[in-house]
Write a protein that binds this DNA or RNA. Structure first.
Lengths: 248, 248
DNA sequence: CGACCCATTGAATATAGTCAACCCGGGTGG
DNA sequence: CCACCCGGGTTGACTATATTCAATGGGTCG
């Protein structure tokens, strides 16, 4: 019997490679230990050598680094279905922190089980490898955003990306997404001060590109306009053709 | 008979995993086609679906993206021994450009040969996977640099990283490295205007952290001081213990 | 020589950060 | 119950950082 965690994983890997029964089976039998994580708790910290990978089932996780002066840079934000620390399978010591942004449900999968699966099923190994490569591709685009885009473009780009990634896992409506992220948190992700983050969001609101309701709901009235303003091209997300909202 | 390219590759993979004779042999028999690339030529461009990976034998390569407005962001710089587009093995369409910075010698390796090797030798596959994960780790640190460090710190960090990476492949002296990179190119890598790049370099010179000779030689008189100024911690490079200059 | 690229400079401008304060709502503890 | 605190969103004024524009001088190369 598949739990939701196993389903998520099978779906993720299948979206990359056609799976045989045996391959599907070995994933379904992975020992996944579910765990609830409260809001804003570290899951793995820099310097640790984890023995498990973390599959995000629900909620949001972030990966971040802390500077000597205490500033935080959020390196990436993760949505359900992601395996944020899959790199720890081959990079034994963590060079950054993994934490929950919201309260979350995660599935811990022992490295040993994954390694064993990878050795026996190269197709699955390649698919997981590809998962880490897409993470890289997102980081590259993050570099471009921080290096070349203005604050407003950066925020717009961030929202475009998040919308597409959330839509791919069925977590959006036609034009809205739920993003339980405070402005100080977004500032840490975009490399802005909180004050400037606030003004930047106001700028997008003034341009009619974003509507917020005071809560965590983000309405993007015109995504094409937002994307063109941001210079957003989803190529780097390397989504399958079936990146549309999943309605089971 | 091993060419330099094969040697580089065997050395790279061995630095990650102990290789059996069979594994060493399969790498040594990879069909690598050497090719000279003049300075500043694209090797692979965005949108392409390459059929080969590119092993850098000598010179420098860069990966970059171009914005709608024409601005360029250099995402990463590559030193001999790197396989900059290894991701193309599983991410079929390129989301960025790969080009030479200096004139360079590269070895083209067919995807098919690598895939075949990976299927038969999971240890080698894991080692190559790890290579791509270190690239990710560098990108994460790039995000931190662009998001949180001042221009001077960013440049200092960049020089620290490059020095360590070059030293790991025996391309440095005690305190100097050869970096055939113009200021406009460095500006594109660090997300600065060329004018500000120039002033930032002057700042590091005034602090006594960098000495240049007007050519491509960079002397770092006090690397500890430079590293502490930059907040540089080489953990993210995930170097083996034998990251010292290789003197054959 | 002229064209071009690179390094450099000065001045004006734009963008983002810092400091300080205010409001609001939700929780806590007296 | 209410006073208080705290985190989050917001604002204004000031400062710092970085970009833009324009120009100069030194090389190199056709």
């Amino acid at each position: 019997m598949l739990t939701t965690a196993h389903e998520l994983l099978v779906r993720k890997v299948s979206s990359i490679a056609a799976l045989s029964e045996a391959e599907r089976g070995v994933i379904a039998e992975l020992p996944i230990q579910l765990r609830d994580v409260p809001r804003r708790k570290d899951i793995v910290t820099e310097g640790e050598t984890p023995s498990h990978c973390c599959l995000l089932v629900s909620g949001f996780l972030i990966r971040y680094k802390i500077m000597p002066g205490g500033q935080r840079q959020i390196v990436n934000l993760h949505v359900p279905g992601d395996i944020p620390d899959l790199q720890s399978l081959h990079l034994t010591v963590m060079d950054h922190h993994l934490a929950s942004l919201t309260s979350a449900n995660v599935g811990m999968i022992p490295h040993a089980a994954i390694r064993d699966m990878n050795d026996r099923f190269p197709v699955v190994a390649s698919a997981l490898w590809r998962v880490t490569l897409i993470d890289s591709a997102i980081l590259r685009e993050r570099v471009v955003s921080l290096g070349q885009r203005s604050a407003s473009e950066r925020l717009a780009h961030f929202l475009c990306e998040l919308f597409v990634r959330l839509r791919a896992v069925g977590q959006t409506d036609e034009k809205t997404m739920l993003l339980q992220m405070t402005q100080p948190e977004m500032a840490d992700a975009l490399g802005l001060s909180t004050v400037h983050m606030n003004r930047t969001l106001q700028d997008l609101r003034a341009r009619g590109l974003v509507v917020t309701d005071g809560g965590s709901k983000f309405l993007l009235p015109n995504r094409d306009k937002l994307a063109s303003f941001a210079g957003f091209n989803p190529l780097y997300l390397h989504l399958a053709r079936d990146d549309r909202p999943k309605t089971p």
